[in-house]
Design a protein around this nucleic acid. Structure first.
Lengths: 349, 349
DNA sequence: ATGAAAGCGCTAACAT
DNA sequence: ATGTTAGCGCTTTCAT
């Protein structure tokens, strides 16, 4: 009968059972130290029989490594994040590290509390997707390595997508299809990534066409009155949204007012969330390699934990246009000529 | 200057700084033991000045409580789960407990590995959403308290929705609207909850109308050939899907074949995932109170951790029909007469 | 009311 | 190659 429940065998007990010292037992279990082959084999055999499982807490206390990292994201309910979280979890687990998830619910206060809780609980590192561009948590970190996603905070390793290029790609696509009067609904502008997208898109539109209007929105399909108003009065033939969620909201609103998408107005999004292709019409959008970014975040963090004094790194991922059905051509030509304006289409994937 | 970074103050250091013993310091910090009011106040003051933060690992090693629980779900990428996870995280945090998330990617093997990792890492308890009806992890638990979501495993606390009633509700709604020929695409039938839904729906259909066909599907909008085939050859005027994700897949397929929903065929889903109302047409579905179930899971687990020997509990939540736009009436009557067949519509919310 | 001290289970010098 | 031992930071019993 095995001791499946209750009392776990300790290293000391294992050592006694094997007739060796705790040190030898530890060495055997961890593949460390110098041990005779037969001794090692013997200890391992007994360990297996006894179903020895090291107490990770004790181990952590000695080594200062918990084998756990934290992931702090704004909102798991936003369809952009589950993919990210899942990939982080999987990647981490491949290295035997577990991940604590905290969500900040969009509040800087929650963000601070979450980080504090995690740091005090003892994590080896943190992957942080901040809600704003301010370093709200620096003083709470107490030396915990951090990699920052999506934002541009100094003093941390950074994982980003080329948001600026994304904005240009979106604008260029519309311009190439004959659109000249373009409106943009940005994401919350206190986020660096949203500003990057918006500025690049607006810059391109101004250069090649004309900016119909520009409003700031939240990351939600529920549109502020300010947005619906501008939409209703709009003469724009196309709108760029700062996120797919917003784009979906825009399309819904347009449709509810009887304007056809993309028949009368084209809409392009950002992120390529899973819903994008299920939407009616399927959403044309700018995709970023979320999974790869998640993997990069974990790997960067793990490396940082190993080598705390290596120079900080900043990894920027390429973005790409995903053409689906929410954007139409204004010109009557059947052939689509995309003026890339010096932008290289492509992706790392 | 505060010691914001690096070396945390230890209890011993705090004790020395306050000129007391470690025991007194511990008592003061934890509000335990018996201590003079002034002594306590003094120690606390010094602790605040020094920004003392207890080492939770050491504490955990002594007390056997880590203040962390695990959440094991099949797939964060399935829109059903983020809400659940988020609510679990929030609820847990309110009690100061952090949550490790693991996803099983639909494999029993991963499930076992994830649970092992968590248990060995040291969690106080586990919230488990199994992928099948088998207890794949029992022997790995080593006494860790577990509450099981959505399935009907014995030996654990159970949190469920009234899936059977949900199936009846869906069928009754269709029947009441004049549908008689109804098809059903079930979820994976190795899941108890999917069977409950399917059996109840099919039973009701057989009693009040006729079952056109029934096929098993995966939790995905991508339909198996077996399903699309049956859909294409179907004479059913309505289909019940075992999950919203499936319902969306069915609608997409129907639309792609030029059949109007709900004009020619009505479709009803299950779960009321966030996207259900964003779908075109907005999805009529059976909702379950996910957030409340998540809260109940955490509370049940926390109580179980406190009192391991209390009798097991099983909490069943009510479900409700959410009428949107994917179901139409077959009769020409404008008034909808729902024959509830003894079922009480209502919800706990 | 306060303090001394024994560990929790483990790792890693440091012996031998 | 193997064993002895000193802690990691904390809680808690037992003295005082």
């Amino acid at each position: 009968m095995t001791n499946s429940a209750l009392k776990r065998i300790t290293l000391k007990e294992l050592a006694k059972a094997a007739g060796v010292s705790v040190a030898s037992a530890s060495y055997a279990v961890n593949g460390a130290g110098s041990l005779g082959d037969s001794t090692r084999a013997h200890i391992l055999k007994i360990a297996a029989e006894l179903e020895y499982r090291p107490n990770q807490l004790a181990k952590a206390m000695k080594t200062g490594r918990t084998g756990a990292i934290g992931l702090v994201v704004p909102d798991l309910t936003n369809p952009f994040f589950p993919n990210l979280a899942q990939t982080v979890i999987q990647t981490a687990r491949r290295s035997g590290v577990s991940v604590f998830i905290a969500n900040t619910e969009g509040s800087a206060d929650q963000e601070r509390k979450s980080v504090s809780l995690l740091v005090e609980r003892g994590i080896d590192g943190l992957i942080w997707f901040p809600i704003v561009d301010t370093d709200t948590v620096g003083p709470l970190l107490r030396g915990t390595p951090v990699v920052v996603l999506d934002r541009n905070l100094s003093g941390y390793d950074l994982i980003q997508a080329d948001y600026g290029r994304g904005g240009e790609l979106a604008a260029a696509h519309l311009i190439a299809l004959g659109h000249r009067h373009i409106g943009v609904v940005t994401g919350p502008l206190d986020a660096w990534s949203a500003r990057q997208r918006a500025n690049a898109a607006i810059g391109y539109i101004r250069a090649q066409g004309s900016l119909a209007w520009s409003v700031e929105g939240a990351f939600s399909p529920d549109l502020d009155p300010a947005i619906t108003k501008v939409l209703d009065e709009s003469r724009a033939t196309a709108v760029i949204a700062g996120a797919d969620l917003i784009a979906i909201g825009v399309i819904r609103h347009l449709q509810s007012k009887g304007v056809a998408v993309p028949g009368e107005v084209s809409v392009i999004g950002f992120d390529d969330i899973p819903w994008a292709q299920l939407n009616t019409p399927a959403l044309t959008t700018i995709e970023m390699p979320v999974e790869e970014m998640a993997v990069a975040a974990v790997e960067t963090l793990l490396r940082r934990i190993e080598k705390p004094s290596e120079p900080l790194r900043r990894v920027v991922f390429n973005v790409a246009l995903v053409e689906r059905a929410s954007v139409g051509s204004l010109s009557s030509e059947a052939t689509i000529q995309v003026d890339e304006g010096g932008i290289t289409l492509g992706r790392l994937k």
